[in-house]
Design a protein around this nucleic acid. Structure first.
Lengths: 159, 159
DNA sequence: CTCATATCAGGCTTACTGACATCT
DNA sequence: CAGATGTCAGTAGGCCTGATATGA
């Protein structure tokens, strides 16, 4: 995306899938850069936000709630626990489990991340008028719903 | 995305950046799966399509035209040349260069890839009516244009 | 000398796969 | 026993950085 030369006047440029993946690339970069200014990444935000929303939980439960894979959960918690942003304590009721919870520092970081995130949305949608933003959001939601139903991602099954 | 359990009723679910990256994820999976049925990947398609559109060229030029990084260009051409889908010949006029060109087999594969691609677009936009597809495409194009102008990706500069 | 070209080796992020030991 | 939990190791795709050798 940083290619300094010739353009890409290519066939695929008008394909919806291309428009989608490319704009998503920009969106992703904006969000990541925003997070990076406070030293975090996407998974960090998602985990912190999930904890803030539903409270402490085991890693497996957090994985289901946040959509983060269990294998990635481990590293994500390691990162955050290393900075004392979350706490990992053994569950006395079930010795397999760790109960992860948010610390005060974690809450503060989450606040900063959400501020960045809000700014980012505005930057992302800059060229669109409010009603256009609304329409885009709605169309994307319908698309996402449709495909989520066909592939995994249930609505609110058990627990 | 294949998580078999709990949903993600999370805060971030309504954010445009989330909707965009998630739908793009679905789009990417659909396209990749389509390409995979004929044993190719995204870079393979892009290179073949670029060759078909502009004709033979050096690797550096192809990189600029296709948006594929020079480092990845090497491996991509290796893949395709190994299956005789493209040909890599030294440029007699400039001994640094390789001139890459499409073979008949490469053209045939490209045809199959484009068929898959068309099917994929339809699958991707399935839940939207024709006029909605149009609107989505237009909004995404405006977004992409805006951000491409701010970050690299010139229009048709030199050459 | 500088610049362009091709190559190689590696990293990054998000997602996922498989294996494993532990515990319910 | 089956099944859940946490951990570790590794993959893949697209994008990117850097170092290098060669030739214009």
């Amino acid at each position: 995306m940083e290619n300094p030369a010739e353009a890409t006047p290519a066939r695929w440029e008008h394909l919806p899938s291309w428009l989608l993946t490319q704009t998503a690339g920009h969106a992703h970069r904006l969000v990541s850069d925003g997070f990076a200014t406070v030293g975090a990444r996407g998974y960090h935000y998602r985990l912190l936000a999930t904890l803030a929303e539903h409270g402490p939980a085991s890693q497996a439960t957090l994985g289901r709630r946040s959509g983060i894979h269990l294998s990635d959960m481990v590293a994500t918690i390691n990162d955050l626990a290393g900075q004392e942003l979350v706490e990992r304590a053994p569950d006395p009721a079930d010795r397999r489990r760790n109960i992860v919870s948010l610390t005060a520092a974690g809450k503060r970081l989450l606040g900063r991340l959400e501020k960045r995130l809000a700014e980012t949305q505005d930057e992302l949608l800059a060229p669109l008028a409010p009603d256009e933003r609304q329409r885009l959001t709605e169309l994307l939601s319908r698309l996402l719903d449709h495909h989520n139903r066909r592939t995994g991602a249930p609505e609110e099954p058990w627990r």
